[in-house]
Design a protein around this nucleic acid. Sequence first.
DNA 1: ACGGTCATACCTCGTTCGTGGTATTGCGCG
DNA 2: CGCGCAATACCACGAACGAGGTATGACCGT
Lengths: 207, 207
Amino acid sequence: MTIRILIADDHPVVRSGVRTMLENESDMVVVAEAADGVEILELYERHAPDVVLMDLRMPRQDGVAAIRAIVAAHANARIVALTSYEGDADIYRALDAGACGYLIKDMLGKEVVGAVRSAAAGKRIIPPGVASRLAEFVPRIDLTARELEVLQLTAKGLRNRDIARVIGRTEETVKVHLKHIMAKLGVEQRTEAVTLALQRGIIHLDD
Amino acid sequence: MTIRILIADDHPVVRSGVRTMLENESDMVVVAEAADGVEILELYERHAPDVVLMDLRMPRQDGVAAIRAIVAAHANARIVALTSYEGDADIYRALDAGACGYLIKDMLGKEVVGAVRSAAAGKRIIPPGVASRLAEFVPRIDLTARELEVLQLTAKGLRNRDIARVIGRTEETVKVHLKHIMAKLGVEQRTEAVTLALQRGIIHLDD
DNA sequence: ACGGTCATACCTCGTTCGTGGTATTGCGCG
DNA sequence: CGCGCAATACCACGAACGAGGTATGACCGT
């Protein structure tokens, strides 16, 4: 009973690395590789893999959105999220969206293999040294859509007044949002709110 | 005449991906893999590879520092820097330190192979679509050591007063540094200076 | 010896930021 | 139906910030 796998990552280097790690196992075969979030859906439909290993940061469609899309159509899909950094907020969003586990890119081959095998068996995988992190983040940070938007614009270096103009609201309102954002993140300066959010993966610099 | 290669990257996934891409070529062999900046030196001495392919962001010792160390001892070393993002300021520092070229991680296998072959032949490689970028950055951003330090602390969310305390200087001095930093980066807000510097790879969030 | 740059420091002035409080509307949950 | 909460908005105030200018000592290269 071979495990059929779909790999999704925008970096060819990573795809071939993961492929190599997995295909050393006699019971695993990589049936397809997707380079972005939209391709994943097509390839999933076409190949119906047992396990999807996907990066969360991808072009065209966010990994979390891709997970939701797959799970919506295939409730029994087994998706393992692949991320570069521990403590990435996307991890929680991914698990929430229906991923059955996640891996960090600096893990060794055997861990990846083990995770995929567990996923195929229907288990939820949480890497050992990371379960603690998960607990550590119990005080989960939830920003509202508006707050996220304001934080995003703050990261671009806009002043409150300009943020207000962009979202079509008063500067006073922006200040209130920022106050709440800083309170939730436990910081006192907008700049720290931005860098902390970047570290936590709450916001990203592209887009 | 086979090309002997040393791969250096802290992510096992990336190492095996690069290895796979290269070992499909009959004239290439990966003689060693280093996981951090210190290991590179040891493995370089031991194996004397023809080409070193190394990530610039690594534990224990920065990639740029590793390049300097290798070049200092072996002036004829052929080092190709591997980076995740175009526009990373580390690219310039790497070329400056003696790297003979660089690659971006989302490149295809054949490009990587070609780059390694060119490097082995003694050519300087600058990927096509990226040469333009290089030119685009002619207005190269050079921050002084002090400015870099101030920017780093600013990224942590410190206020001018606190930065002054940390570096043992007056708040007025910090303001001047920040003014110069923002002028060099072409921005008007400290927060934008930070995010722009992060995008450009001028500063990093860890440490 | 001279020009350039870095780092330092001080001053002023207007702007922006962060905090406190109050208040209204609308939505979802029990 | 209330309760909580998100989002909106306004006010006031002190702290922090950014722009402008001036100046001095150190060092570096010419």
